[in-house]
Design a protein around this nucleic acid. Structure first.
Lengths: 338, 338
DNA sequence: CCTTGGCACTCCATGGTCACGAGTGCCAGA
DNA sequence: TCTGGCACTCGTGACCATGGAGTGCCAAGG
């Protein structure tokens, strides 16, 4: 077990390394932090911390830098979440209040996060899984061609073309529209399939094929759009990564273009609590020297999506976590209002 | 005026520099290109080219590299557009054919361009300016709350909420929907304002306020959405920029996050011809060491939007231009079919 | 048992020197 | 007008010496 002071030393190392980006030695530590002990003592502590795998030296006779395991301990036990200043909170509020629609909310959130944390921001669009249907609209574009428009309670609109097996009259269309809406409006996506299952049977023989096709398209849309979209920003902050730059940055840029990878990053923990994945804890190699701070957000108690930032493992965890949490909270409020 | 051979020398310099990324000297030139003259002669030609500002030396007693002006001459007079191989053309076709909707077309196009050119790809969504209205749908969400959905012939769907000044009945709504559509369907966006101008007058006094509000929202949507969206990809290719990397890449990443800047980049020349902006020809500083190759694409003869790539001035212009042109052509075809 | 000062050792970073080589400009001769 | 020759420039890489920051260990002291 590590003594109180050794934890203190680890904290100091993390803080200094994050600040200076350089390996930190025993002497410098005692000078910058009032630990009350001499460099020699700190050296002993450091040796112990190194034995336990919390810190490492890049090469003999250099200072120490925290390992992933060291950051993990720091985040779990040593660091709080630094609350934002009043000014920052006001800025968030003001900036988000100006949004005009869902796209805008997401876009502004991304910018905000990137600016506050000076890192790469990732925001997932509100998920459809927990969403409900606000309205389904059917438009006849040609005798055998229908456009299906799905509107969700989070304000998203999805459309699909449907090619009908047979011509479909306006009255039938109106009928279908009315019955469909009476069944699914206000319901969750996941409930829709069972709710519309028997709908074709109540139509005349000639129309059943078309009704089935339309319903199939609707269900398909629900499933497809559950694959969630996201928006990223602040990639310019990648240039602050470090000195060994080109090698580090390339795989990160590649990962950022793979939506699947990003969704996994954000999504692995399914509740709305804040998650921090440090270095090798990220499944995707290439993100092995980055950390991901993510948290769920939502209009009510439940999280409907996640947002977070991707940055070097050497990041200011308390500050970043504070910013991420605050932004998530405000976005939730905005969504609840609209 | 430059002699034939000097132009040939310039071409050789550009080609070699693009290939090797290193300043090219007189001796290397004569070895790799059968110019039929000695290094000394080439040196004289190089001196002349330097006097004219087409090439420069990074430092005394180093080889020469092309200047922006040199690339310009190369692109205008010396280089053709390199057509793609049959295999590449097939690959494009196959890849784009798999697209299911507009978003997907754009997304696939971006990936394709980035992969073919190994540079950063930018694709503008089909512009609404030249688009026509396919359908306008009005949905009553609450007694005094209407959702307006605009569907364009390019497959885009935009929605807006309208808060009505007074409750608005279902029959009035159906009436408005029918009249509105009969006037604007198939029409260009730019024509819509004059077409709906007198519509409120034909409604009863009580409803006029709401009708006006709806129309105002519609017009607003048309205008707002003319501010065009775009998608970028292949940013990982920025890592191939050069050695002086961090300095070069940062402003580029920043510019890429500013939609406005990008739209300007693509849009400056308004016709559908291919444009190449080299280095300082780009208004935005920070893109001073990049070139932009852009071309319009569209479903018919007219260009509805632009696409292109952003890369280092030291790029393979013939190949890039060939790829950009080919992709634009195929995207146009896809759009025309759907 | 923990802490401290001292000491020898390691090793990176810095800067200087030097030789090499690629490249240039210029000039005289074909 | 082209060519070969020649002297000059200058960036690059190798090599080496130096300084300093940092470590590990040990013996002495609380």
């Amino acid at each position: 077990m590590l003594s109180e002071r050794r934890l203190e030393v680890l904290r100091a190392i993390v803080q200094d390394y994050v600040g200076t980006e350089e390996p930190v030695g025993s002497k410098a530590l005692t000078e910058r932090h009032r630990l009350g002990v001499s460099p020699a003592t700190v050296r002993n502590d450091m040796a112990a911390l190194e034995d336990e795998g919390f810190i490492a030296q890049p090469h003999t006779s250099a200072g120490r830098i925290p390992t992933d395991k060291g950051y993990r301990l720091f985040v779990d036990k040593l660091a709080g979440v630094k609350p934002l200043s009043a000014a920052e909170r006001r800025a968030i509020q003001n900036f988000l209040d100006g949004a005009v629609d869902l796209d805008d909310v997401v876009a502004r959130t991304v910018r905000l996060l990137a600016q506050l944390t000076r890192q790469v921001a990732v925001v997932q669009y509100p998920s459809l899984t927990r969403s409900t249907v606000r309205h389904v609209e059917l438009l006849s574009l040609a005798p055998a061609r229908i456009m299906l428009v799905l509107i969700t309670d989070t304000g998203r609109v999805e459309q699909r073309m449907v090619d009908c097996p047979a011509p479909f009259g306006e009255t039938s269309l109106a009928d279908l529209r009315a019955r469909l809406n009476s069944r699914v409006v206000g319901r969750r996506f996941t409930d829709v399939p069972s709710l519309v299952q028997d709908l074709p049977e109540s139509f005349e023989q000639d129309d059943r094929g078309t009704v089935s096709t339309v319903l199939a398209t609707l269900l398909e849309t629900l499933v497809e759009e559950t694959e969630e979209r996201l928006m990223i920003g602040g990639t310019a902050n990648l240039t602050r990564f470090g000195h060994d730059f080109p090698l580090t940055i390339r795989p990160v840029l590649e990962a950022l273009e793979e939506q699947v990878v990003l969704l996994k990053l954000l999504g692995e923990a399914k509740d709305s609590r804040m998650t921090v994945r440090i270095g090798h804890e990220n499944a995707h190699e290439g993100l092995n020297s980055t950390s991901v701070v993510a948290v769920g957000y939502g209009s009510g108690d439940e999280a409907v999506a996640k947002l977070g930032v991707v940055g070097p493992t050497r990041m200011d965890y308390p500050g970043t976590m504070g910013a991420v949490r605050a932004v998530a909270r405000y976005v939730g409020q905005i969504l609840a209002e609209s």
